[in-house]
Write a protein that binds this DNA or RNA. Sequence first.
DNA 1: CAGTATCCTGTCCGATACTG
DNA 2: CAGTATCGGACAGGATACTG
Lengths: 161, 161
Amino acid sequence: MKRTSFESMPCPLARALEHLSDSWNALILREAFYGATRFDEFEATLGIASNTLTRRLKDMTAGGLFERRLYNDKPPRYEYVLTQKGKDLRPVLLTLLQWGNKYSNPPGASVHLVDTLTGAPVELALMDAVTGERIGPRHKVVGRSSRGKAQQSYPFPETHL
Amino acid sequence: MKRTSFESMPCPLARALEHLSDSWNALILREAFYGATRFDEFEATLGIASNTLTRRLKDMTAGGLFERRLYNDKPPRYEYVLTQKGKDLRPVLLTLLQWGNKYSNPPGASVHLVDTLTGAPVELALMDAVTGERIGPRHKVVGRSSRGKAQQSYPFPETHL
DNA sequence: CAGTATCCTGTCCGATACTG
DNA sequence: CAGTATCGGACAGGATACTG
């Protein structure tokens, strides 16, 4: 009856998903990458209910994605700034954004990444930082840990694509 | 009272999130990348309830991530194979996996990507496919479309990191 | 094997109202 | 401005039982 908590799973992917599975979190992060730091900004640009925003911000702060910082004393005012852990999610969001652009059904406002030096739109590619090669089918995931009832794993991890 | 549907949002990122926000979907995709195609495989390796799996598979098939394919006639048997749209989510999952590895708190089974030619572990980097440069702070997102009540946007999109 | 059918519960979210 | 408190509704997901 209870929702399975993915954070308890051994797989790092599953645990990472904890932060993005709550639908609002990614959008809040997006706003943060755009420069938003204050409660009000998130609320207005996202059109999110205030109590929901409170909850999500609290969760993500507890999760180490945001840091709450006092920026005013007289009436205590806080702002939410991304930690390194939070900032490191940018590549994930960007990759997902590119996917979203590619498969924007009918109604899609084009939102893409540009190189501010050249003004040219960027086509993202995932590469091996060491060899400089594009990630492809020959790169496979190993050391997998699944949570199967039978603790069974595939003999060897096969990957598609 | 109703959950806001992100698929109706103009932002491609928000719509893309539709597919990953349902917590199980990403895990099912992961299994698919490992080579799983049959109901039973997903069920056993994930430890997911059968009815939930049915729903998720149905959703993702409707969403164009999977294709249902008949692989047996006598008793009709179907398998779920990734479409190109589904396969294209691999970079997203991989990027997220790397993030998960970096921030695996105490209990983290190391699950990483290896180059099967050299056997060396891969460090992922997001690059500009054209210029070959690493994505950094100078690459910014433009053309943003938010759903704010006031339809207000920041003057110019600033990005962190 | 590959699901479907019910029922039940947890939780996420929105609406609304209120505070220092 | 930056929240907190309370309420109710909509689902997702688990348990369980059953089918061709």
